[in-house]
Design a protein around this nucleic acid. Structure first.
Length: 566
RNA sequence: GCGCUUGUAGCUCAGCAGGAUAGAGCGACCGCCUCCUAAGCGGUAGGUCAUCGGUUCGAUUCCGAUCAAGCGCACCA
């Protein structure tokens, strides 16, 4: 039901063509306070035209208007305020949610269009840090929201599994490593070798030559080099998978940098053919000065390719493979320029679909105000953060609900949920300084707060199930009290929230919504006893059930579990 | 120096396409468990919306300048 449209039609009639209907629709707004109704029409713009005081105009309009769906149309100062008929709105929305369940809020914005999402993308032989968490959970949530709006997301983990660092890694392993060590603790050991290499090559620059030689052998397909590389890659991947399992994130593709090795020549040839390649300071570049961008470095002085060459190959490959309607890159804000260059080069190549490529940037995580850096030892290991969070959740359960059945499982859901939610609740672009206590907080505006509201709703529903409260299609869900109204309004705005979240690629919109809904529901059941026998009992149960459905669905879209009890 | 992003309560942040007394959470102080799990609910205190201009009947919101912070600025990704 489009209420704005209804109001606009009524206003249009009342105003007898003084304003265009489109203008009227744009002018209609939502009042800040529920006491001022559900929709409002400010009369300021009419004051000039009609040469009357806005207050007078508001009163004249209000007197003329009556709409079935609204119980009251009232002039308050210069505004005409519209109050929805609570009983009928309540009845409509609750029936709709209970009929559609998890599909409530679904809409067809994408028409099945495929959307590859470049996300997470950790480097082999390096641990997954909090920085990767952002890309992973933001990408994961966007994928779910896209699916809800009828796109087909393709989650691609563009692994950092190639490059000169593998030469260093192989050399370091040959010098100081052992198979047993790596098997026992792959990431940490590999990282250790890598770090040691960087320490020792200061005094022994010949190590760099050895590393270069190893990487050359790797590129040339030397059997030993390839075997080691594959092994490092698979061991690293195994430990990454442990973390992805904890987070509940799955991927559709692990095609990383190495996958595009044999696909870069074509890009270079293409650029040459189009006459876009120039030599500059010994390197091959594409000039982008007409885009007001730095030149794109395609080949180094030594002929080796670079990041952007690989990304060009990947972009083209994805277009061919998926014929995408959009292609997303969930990558930190600091790489904005790179993606501008990427799109510009594709544009120069005449690939008009470059406009469908969107960089989804996000803010930086710092610690003590400083940028995280593996080399400076400022790393926050995601695995440890998750474990800490789960341990803390476990402790909370022991304190607050010691007789809970599935303590371990719920502790995982709550602990991990807190970490994910914390990352998604604010706008992507905000930077944040890492604070473990802040991340694993369970009170206030947090994931567990939303989970708790859901668990409480489920608890009420379990009790209700023991009574015989059959919901039927003919049942009247006509609630009209103030606390219920806040909840109902929020339930009704779910679709609009999903739409905004997907067009802005902004999971925080859903996260904020879930907090608002949880808050209004907490308030509701704190002040209204649901399970008392009166003529609105069934309607209240329907409200609780609807809240549970929408809260669970909101959390699902964020990649957060919703335990039924906690 | 140039470019991008950001500047709202002590702290962390909302405020959707400009509109009615600027909202939450945390922290502080004060209340509420014979009542569906107190991971909850209620109340008090706390803001010249960085600064200065401009557009408008009206600007926290749009535009410009200034100041401050973060990030980036060719052979890393």
């Amino acid at each position: 039901m489009n209420y704005k449209e209804l109001i606009a039609t009524a206003l249009d009639n009342a105003l007898e063509g003084q304003l265009k209907k489109e203008t009227i629709i744009q002018t209609i707004e939502k009042p800040k306070s529920l006491a001022l109704g559900d929709f409002a029409f400010p009369t300021f713009p009419l004051a000039k035209i009609l040469r009357k005081a806005p207050q007078v105009i508001a009163q004249e309009i209000a007197a003329k208007i009556s709409i079935k769906e609204f119980e009251e149309v009232q002039a308050v100062g210069p505004y005409v305020n519209f109050f929805l008929d609570k009983r009928s709105y309540s009845d409509t929305i609750l029936h709709q949610i209970l009929a559609e369940r998890a599909a409530y809020g679904n809409q067809d914005l994408g028409q099945q269009g495929k959307v590859p999402i470049d996300m997470s993308s950790p480097n082999i032989a390096k641990p997954i840090s909090m920085g990767h968490l952002r890309s992973t959970v933001i990408g994961n949530s966007i994928a779910k929201i896209l699916a809800k709006t009828n796109y087909q997301p393709v989650k691609i983990n563009h692994l950092g599994d190639w490059g000169t660092q593998f030469g260093k890694l192989i050399e370091a392993y040959k010098l100081w490593g052992s198979e047993e060590e790596v098997k026992a603790d792959p990431i940490n050991k590999l990282l250790e070798y890598y770090v040691r290499f960087h320490k020792e090559d200061v005094a022994h620059p010949e190590l760099d030559d050895e590393a270069r030689a190893w990487f050359k052998r790797l590129e040339d397909g030397d059997a030993e080099a390839i075997t080691l590389w594959k092994w490092f890659r698979s061991e690293s991947l195994k430990s990454f998978m442990r973390i992805y399992n904890k987070l509940g994130v799955e991927f559709d593709s692990f095609n990383g940098e190495a996958f595009y090795n044999d696909k870069m020549d074509e890009v270079v040839t293409l650029l040459e053919k189009k006459g876009l390649l120039q030599e500059s300071r010994g390197a091959q570049i594409v000039d982008l000065s007409k885009y007001n961008l730095n030149p794109a470095l395609i080949k180094k002085t030594d002929g080796a390719t670079l990041y952007i060459t690989r990304d060009l190959a990947a972009a083209i490959y994805r277009k061919r493979t998926y014929d995408f309607s959009q292609s997303l890159y969930v990558v930190g804000n600091e790489q904005t320029n790179h993606f501008k260059q990427l799109k510009a080069v594709l544009k120069e190549l005449g690939e008009d679909w470059s406009d469908d490529i969107h960089h989804i940037p996000f803010g930086l995580i710092t610690q003590g105000g400083k940028k995280l850096s593996t080399r400076a030892g400022r790393v926050i290991l995601l695995d440890e953060v998750l474990d800490d969070a789960v341990a803390l959740a476990k402790k909370q359960i022991e304190e607050k609900n010691p007789q809970l059945a599935d303590k371990e499982l719920v502790a995982k859901q709550v602990g991990v949920g807190a970490v994910i939610f914390h990352d998604l609740k604010n706008e992507r672009m905000n930077n944040f300084d890492f604070d473990l206590e802040e991340v694993v907080r369970f009170e206030g505006e947090t994931g567990p707060y939303v989970q708790y509201a859901h668990a409480r709703a489920m608890s009420i529903l379990r009790k209700a199930a023991k009574q015989d409260l059959n919901e039927t299609k003919s049942a009247a869900y006509q609630l009209n009290d103030e606390d219920a109204w806040e909840v109902l309004r929020l339930l009704g705005s779910f679709s609009a929230i999903i739409k905004r979240a997907v067009t802005e690629y902004e999971p925080s919109v859903v996260a904020k919504y879930s907090l608002h809904l949880a808050k209004s529901f907490n308030k509701y059941y704190a002040h209204t006893k649901v399970l008392t026998s009166d003529d609105q009992l069934i309607a209240r149960v329907a409200l609780v059930k609807s809240v549970a459905v929408v809260l669970k669905e909101s959390l699902r879209l964020l990649g957060v579990q919703a335990p039924v009890e906690m």
